[in-house]
Design a protein around this nucleic acid. Sequence first.
RNA 1: GCACCCAUAGCUCAGCUGGAUAGAGCGUUGCCCUCCGAAGGCAAAGGUCGCACGUUCGAAUCGUGCUGGGUGCACCA
Length: 612
Amino acid sequence: MGGRGLCGKAPVLDLRLPVWHPAGDKTGFDQMNLFADIRALVVAELTAMTAEGALPAGLDFAHVAVEPPRDAAHGDMATNAAMVLAKPAGLAPRAIADALAVRLAKDARIMAADVAGPGFLNLRLSNLVWQSVVKSALTDGADYGRSNAGGGRKVNVEFVSANPTGPMHVGHVRGAVVGDALSNLLAFAGWSVTREYYINDGGAQVDVLARSAYERYREANGLEPEIREGLYPGDYLVPVGAALKEKYGTSLLNQPESVWLTDLRDYASAMMMQEIRNDLAQLGVRMDVYSSEKALYGTGQIEAAIQTLRDQGLIYEGTLEPPKGKVPEDYEARIQTLFRSTAHGDDVDRPVMKSDGSWTYFAPDIAYHFDKVQRGFDELIDIFGADHGGYVKRMKAAVSALSGGRVPLDIKLVQLVKLYKNGEPFKMSKRAGTFVTLHDVVEQAGADVTRFMMLTRKNDVALDFDFAKVLEQSKDNPVFYVQYANARINSVLRKAQAAGLDVSDAALAKADLTQLSHPAEIDMAQQIAEWPREVEIAAKGNEPHRIAFFLYELASEFHGLWNRGNDDPSLRFIQEGKDATSCAKIALARATGVVISAGLSILGVKPAEEMR
RNA sequence: GCACCCAUAGCUCAGCUGGAUAGAGCGUUGCCCUCCGAAGGCAAAGGUCGCACGUUCGAAUCGUGCUGGGUGCACCA
């Protein structure tokens, strides 16, 4: 036996004894999450202690946590159980901790359980546990870290929703990326996700679009366009004008607006939407549903939504106080139809109908969100630009009222992106006139780099995007740093394969992982073990940026291990003449790669196979 | 005037939803790099977590009140 190229022959590493999953503890999905496993063990022991009378009955274990300690010197994991329970149990924290420590230490996975400080219980886990994590990553592959935290709940993520009046610009990019990555993340964490775009094609802005397009149509017919104040000046409408000439010839020239407005509005906004779809595709953003504001008019949906509010006594006729501070000069109190949003947490009531009897923008938006509620979503998420901050409370109030408080609405405000090039503020206006388009950004930086960088800040903080820096190949550049780690891993696999080793995941999963005993290797495995936990934390907080940060840390750990191989050849992944050891080390590298791929896939970034 | 967001090392930012001596990168300083895995590596210095109260075993994290910066505030979308 021991033929070259085999990564088998390992002792059985499956430590999943029944004790890991006490009956009634959630679903089987958490079995990949080591922290959840150990927490389950702690809770099981606490339950047993209660049964034996060591703890009073009726204690709430909800706040018992198992987490990595801030300082790794304290151990692999720590639980606050004793401190959380001390007061309600009427016992000293250390007494509970001591008793719990004795019990936990009996578990095969736990090497040591030490009480520290005011009552922390520090746990040191057997290397076998960390080694088995490597195996899990290899056997689960792309599903490693997948979670059922969402429990299959239906969530609707509305994002982008740019007006169909022009191409997408930088301001839209971040919201698009955040929404797309968040959708990926939630899907990975067990939610049933619908990605939705709300087309604002019902308001005055599409009339402006139609008039602007009409001027371009005149231009296409050899006339001088009159781009008056208030029209869209961008030359992206030139092709629209040409298409209109193609379709209508000269028949619309010198015709009054009433003749062509409706047609041009539909035609131009359809063309703009097509362009927006192309932009999204270029950025790698996928939508499941496009909903139209215009389609809500005339169907009775707006009336029905307002009626639902009226039935709750939330609609009334009245006048609003003028805004305090700077009052507009032409302010004049008027009677309007108002939504009593203050009954659901807003600061002032909001108009749904203008004094001339037409709907405000808010009304179709209410109807649209009512539609989402009626479609049966359990949760709604809206991604808005930061300039919509004033809109958050009224929208939440509306959803709260329309769903009877059943459906939570989380609104993520995405802050500005400031563009730079070599530290200088970046201005470019190829075709748009005044703004940098999404197309320009992606063309310069690439979709992968753009997406990753947009996720390196939490959404409510402004972000600097420097075209020079994001393309730099150095450690300063997080995209490169993570991609480089993946490239190194692939390089190891290629070399091993060339040397005749079977480096398939199936083969590597059978490697003798007990060979991974060096602290640096255990550290690497521990980082891999954190992945499922990180996914759940990020998903529950709707915070995709955590994935980007985690990948950076993971890459950092990997590069660190790689660099130590410079000084200590025994830490190199390929050990000449020692296939069993090589297989184990390559398995560790590949497991790291599995997580990087999974993480990048959530971010919507293609992993780099090699750097050039 | 009101609402929302932000404030953590010189700079750019993380910080596990309340845990132990608050972290990373850049920058600075020092050391290492003829070859064996260096588009680098190791180490050090650097903090009143904007301020003040409060909640409790325990606060950067939660609450209240301030200060400074950003954004938005009548029938615009």
